[in-house]
């Protein structure tokens, strides 16, 4: 029925072209409009928007938003077909279950969110269950609640007593050890060591000519921030902007599991790892790249012992910025700039 609404054969093939181009990217890639524009399938943005809409209507693209920008994720043709075969009510309910992830969703919540009647919901849930798209789960906290989640997902461990706790206390050592492993893994995956490039002959010649012809010495300027070095002592540089393989919670978890760094007795789930990743973001060690990916903050892995503090700013470097009696200090007061020993000390040292 969907095919009958296609206006013309040629535009249908364009739609497929766009889909195929997207499919060339690794799974779970998130596309922004400009990525799709770069594929140069559509002639202008109006027709691109039309193609996107067609794909969305056919459930082949999933619409998401990230920081206010619309972005898209590809669905497999199988999945799209399944979605297409659903009734609108089923699809609505399915989408809510899908977005609840590994936490699952209570039937009462579904009803409140969708506003469908009890009978319709029961029917839909049954249908979806029979197609093996969703499954019923038990919640330990609320054993009386009837809950559903996507069939292929593992229900998450309840946060209380999760893998981060040992005898009811936070397992600080485990958290710390795993944090280090994760940050190093993310750095390896999100930055590249710049290839050693002897400066090309032309560049040297050019520079020489420049120095001779000018009194300004450009070479004298050191970089504002020393570039962090990778494991081979070469500067780390970002991936090109087309890079889409930034580690995700799922891929980091897969790495941890495969590497065997944690005891198998620690049943680490995606949502546990998510807590750790959030914490690392707060700690300024890693940062979000798009909706799913992570990148390590430049210099998060400290190989040269630069120290934790960093440069500070004009205030924190100055004696007054660290002064214990700052609030008492003033001209004519008990402490003042004239007699200040902190200044004397600061001026004396380097």
């Amino acid at each position: 029925m969907a095919s009958s609404s296609k206006p013309a054969a040629s535009s249908g093939s364009k739609k497929d072209q766009l889909y195929d181009r997207c499919a060339e990217a690794p799974p779970d890639t998130v596309f922004y409009q400009r990525d799709l524009a770069d594929m140069q399938v559509a002639d202008d943005s109006a027709s691109l928007m039309m193609l996107i809409q067609q794909l969305v209507d056919a459930h082949m693209l999933q619409v998401m938003t990230w920081e206010g920008q619309v972005c898209y994720k590809l669905r497999s043709r199988d999945e799209a077909a399944k979605l297409k075969s659903m009734t609108p009510d089923e699809r609505l309910i399915f989408s809510h279950i899908e977005s609840s992830g590994t936490a699952g969703i209570w039937t009462k919540t579904i009803k409140a969110k969708t506003g469908v009647t009890q009978t319709i919901m029961t029917k839909c849930l049954k249908q979806l269950e029979s197609k093996a798209l969703i499954k019923a789960i038990n919640n330990v906290k609320f054993p009386t609640r009837k809950m559903y989640m996507l069939a292929h997902l593992m229900p998450s461990e309840d946060v209380v007593g999760g893998p981060w706790h040992q005898d009811g206390e936070l397992d600080v050592d485990l958290i710390e050890a795993l944090s280090n492993i994760v940050v190093r893994f993310i750095e390896r995956e999100s930055w590249v060591e710049q290839k050693q490039r002897g400066p090309s002959k032309v560049a040297i010649a050019k520079r020489k000519a420049y120095v001779l012809s000018s009194t300004n010495d450009i070479e004298a300027e050191p970089p504002l921030f020393k570039p962090p070095l990778g494991p081979h002592k070469l500067p780390l540089i970002p991936h090109p902007s087309s890079h889409r393989h930034y580690p995700t919670c799922a891929s980091i978890l897969a790495y941890i599991r495969a590497s065997g760094v944690v005891d198998t007795s620690v049943a680490l789930q995606e949502q546990d790892l998510q807590v750790l990743l959030d914490n690392l973001v707060f700690d300024g060690k890693i940062e979000r790249m798009g909706a799913l990916g992570y990148r390590s903050v430049r210099g998060a892995v400290d190989r040269e012992g630069v120290g934790e503090e960093g440069d500070g700013n004009g205030l924190s470097q100055a004696p007054c910025g660290r002064c214990p009696v700052f609030s008492l200090c003033g001209e004519g007061g008990p402490v003042n700039a004239k007699s200040c020993v902190y200044f004397t000390e600061w001026l004396r040292t380097g």
Partner: peptide, 20 residues
């Protein structure tokens, strides 16, 4: 700038808590 100041006076932990 706020975070840099906090880091200088209250370590990384201070900044982490402020971000949270």
């Amino acid at each position: 700038e706020i975070e840099d100041t906090v880091t200088a006076r209250h370590e990384r932990m201070g900044t982490r808590l402020i971000r949270i």
